[in-house]
Design a protein around this nucleic acid. Sequence first.
DNA 1: ATCAACCGCTTTCATTTTGCAACTGGTTAA
DNA 2: TTAACCAGTTGCAAAATGAAAGCGGTTGAT
Lengths: 170, 170
Amino acid sequence: MDEAHRSGCPINLTLEVLGDRWSLIVIRDIMFGNRRHFRELLQKSDEKIASNILADRLKRLVEKGLLYREDDPSHKQKAIYSLTEMAIELVPLLAEMGAWGRRFLPVSEELAIRAELLEKGGRPLWEDFMQELRVQHLHVAPDPSKPSVFERLTAAYQEVLARKQAAAAE
Amino acid sequence: MDEAHRSGCPINLTLEVLGDRWSLIVIRDIMFGNRRHFRELLQKSDEKIASNILADRLKRLVEKGLLYREDDPSHKQKAIYSLTEMAIELVPLLAEMGAWGRRFLPVSEELAIRAELLEKGGRPLWEDFMQELRVQHLHVAPDPSKPSVFERLTAAYQEVLARKQAAAAE
DNA sequence: ATCAACCGCTTTCATTTTGCAACTGGTTAA
DNA sequence: TTAACCAGTTGCAAAATGAAAGCGGTTGAT
């Protein structure tokens, strides 16, 4: 179950779980892209993960307690992957990663817009988003008084994408 | 210079730079442990990095713009590694990583105390700490009105360590 | 002047991880 | 009946990692 740890440092332990090139990509796609099936994660991500790597990461993330796997009642072969509370609480970390990447790396506009909104919204927005993720993934009852952060992020992304495509078509 | 990127997503680009098991350990040790020489990074870290990996990571981090290397005027063979602004602005990300690790992973008390202070202090403390790092690493003039966050973090760590050693000696 | 400790790495080699491509046995909808 | 789809698995080459020893030069103490 527990392989020996390199040290008890919180940053090190976090790196032991998430410190590779794919684990956070998978979590990002489930969290922000609502990809819940193997094929969706395989085909709809921009980074083109290999199927054996995806299979390995999903298994690892389930073992580490960040995801859980259920059978899809609508299809005997489909599996549904969901975020656990442990993964939902990565929202601040992913928001900071997005903010840093946006500031220092050559991001594309349509993929940076969600990071920008998350950064501008700050911790109150993150908390709203985490609560929505709990509704989506942990079967928590929704709070109808709150507008959906997920929809706001997705709409902003679609808007930039449509504008760039319109500009490219000219 | 620039290898092809997997995508323009800010999270992905950040992972392309920092998504491995050692890069952030090196930055952590320079940032929080003030390790500035190769041998210090090699021998004084809890995780026992191999010398070839350390050499490779230092080279990579210099190339990516997170560190810079200078000759130490006091010793012809010594090199001094310093953080750039790009690395200093990782403080919020490292603080979030520490907070998440502390919440969900089996951290040790003496290594978690700094993460706890950083978390409790929040963004105002992070800003103070970043300003101190600019003084240490970028030769910016210090602000004498501010008490040192670095010293506060280090003192808290030493205190827990001493208490644990006293308890172990009984 | 001598010598041991220290300096930033490099080299070698075994093991592990990654990445690509093809493939599997079964399910579903037309 | 059949074509598309389902979650993966397999085989193999290439790259990354990790442990250990070693390198030529510098330094400070004797």
